[in-house]
Design a protein around this nucleic acid. Structure first.
Lengths: 187, 187
DNA sequence: TTGTGATTTCATATTTTTCTGAAAGTTTCC
DNA sequence: GGAAACTTTCAGAAAAATATGAAATCACAA
C-alpha cells in the first residue's frame, strides 16, 4: 500500500464525513455549507485559510466568509495565525465534548429561550385568576403553564450542563447513562 | 367583562401561541404549518377535523393532510371519532411530558442515528490498525471514534429517557436539575 | 354495486433560504 | 499616504423547501 493510496483513502473518508455532517446540518436548521466548513476543519484538525476552504468545498468567498463568522459565533471554531502571515486561519475545537456543549448551548438559546419568552407573553393576554376568570381561560392557562414549566426545566438543564463552566455534561451524561440500567452493564 | 370579550381574548392568546410554536417549528427543522397544526390542537385541547384546521389556519387541504400525517408519525396527535360521524377528528396529546418525549425520540431518530451510522461507514474506509497504518489515519480515526462515542451516548440517553416505557425523562430531569446545585436551592 | 363524503396524492406554483461575485471596506506594511 | 493583501457586505441569482388544488383514491352506507 503506497502513500498515495493512503492519501486517497483518507481524503475519501474525510469527504464522506463532510457530507454526512453537512446533511445533518440541514436537519439541524443550519445551512449545509456552514456544517461542511465545520466538518472539514474538524476532520482534518488543521488550521485552514479561506482559500483552502473555498477550494476544497467548492464554495464562493462570500459563503465561506459568512459560514466562518457563524461558526465563530457558535464557538466551535477559533481564529489562528501562522507565524508572520497576514491571512486568517481557522481551527475547529478538537475536544468533542466541548464542541457538543457549544452546540447544545447555542441550540437552547435559539430553540428554547424564545419559546419561553413567548409563553410568558401569551399568558399575559387573558385573566386567569379571580372569580371572573372563565373555565376556558383557566384551562388554557393550565396547559400553557405546564408547557412553560417543561421548557424552563430544559433551559435550566442546558445552562447547567452546557454552560461555559465545565465538564458538567460529560459527567452527567455518564451518570445518567448508567444509573437506571438493569441489564447489559458491560457496554 | 362579557363572554364575547373573554372569547376574543382567548382566541388572541391562542393565535399568539400558534404563531410562537410555528416559528419554533421552522427553527426545529419541521415545516411551520405542521407546527401550527399541532399548536392549534394542543392549545384548544379539542378534537378538530380537517376543515376546521383549514379554516382556522388558512391552509390548503393538501397541506393539512400532509401535516396531520406527519404529526401522527411523530406520535404527538391521534385520531379520534365523534359518535356516528364519518369524518376523522384529531386530538393532540395533552400531557406535556409525553409530548416532549415524543418530540425528543423523533429528533434523536432523525438527527443522531443517521450520523452514528455514517460514522461507522466512514471508519471502514481506511485501515487504522496494524503496522501499516499511517499516523494520519490513526489521527483521523481517533477523532471520529470520539465523536461516535459522544453521539452514541446521546442516543442511549435519548432512548432510555424518551423511550415509550415511561416517566423516565421527567424523573431524570428533576434529578439533574437539583443534584449539582450549590446555591439558590429554593427554585 | 353504486353513490357520496372524506382523504390522499402529486405536478405545479409560491415562498423561503442559501449562494454567488463584484464592490466596498479593513488592515498592514512600505 | 497609499498600495497590496485579505475580508466583509449585499443585491440579485439559484436552489431548496413548502403549499396549492384538482384528480385519484378510499371507505362506508344503502
Amino acid at each position: 500500500m503506497t502513500p498515495d493510496t493512503d492519501n486517497a483513502q483518507l481524503r475519501k473518508a474525510q469527504d464522506r464525513f463532510i457530507d454526512a455532517w453537512g446533511r445533518m446540518g440541514s436537519v439541524w436548521g443550519i445551512s449545509r455549507t456552514m456544517a461542511e466548513v465545520h466538518a472539514l476543519l474538524f476532520v482534518t484538525g488543521d488550521a485552514l485559510c479561506m482559500d483552502e476552504l473555498m477550494d476544497r468545498l467548492n464554495i464562493s468567498r462570500g459563503n465561506a466568509s459568512m459560514s466562518l463568522r457563524a461558526l465563530l459565533e457558535w464557538g466551535v471554531i477559533t481564529k489562528a495565525h501562522k507565524d508572520g502571515q497576514r491571512r486568517d486561519y481557522y481551527v475547529a475545537e478538537q475536544d468533542v465534548w466541548a464542541m457538543f456543549r457549544a452546540i447544545l448551548r447555542e441550540r437552547v438559546k435559539r430553540e428554547v429561550e424564545p419559546l419561553i419568552e413567548s409563553l410568558g407573553e401569551v399568558r399575559e393576554l387573558y385573566p386567569s385568576q379571580g372569580k371572573d376568570a372563565p373555565e376556558s381561560a383557566r384551562d388554557l392557562d393550565q396547559r400553557l403553564s405546564e408547557m412553560q414549566e417543561v421548557f424552563e426545566l430544559v433551559a435550566t438543564l442546558g445552562e447547567r450542563f452546557a454552560g461555559p463552566s465545565g465538564q458538567g455534561l460529560k459527567v452527567a451524561a455518564k451518570l445518567l447513562a448508567k444509573a437506571p440500567a438493569r441489564r447489559k452493564a458491560k457496554a
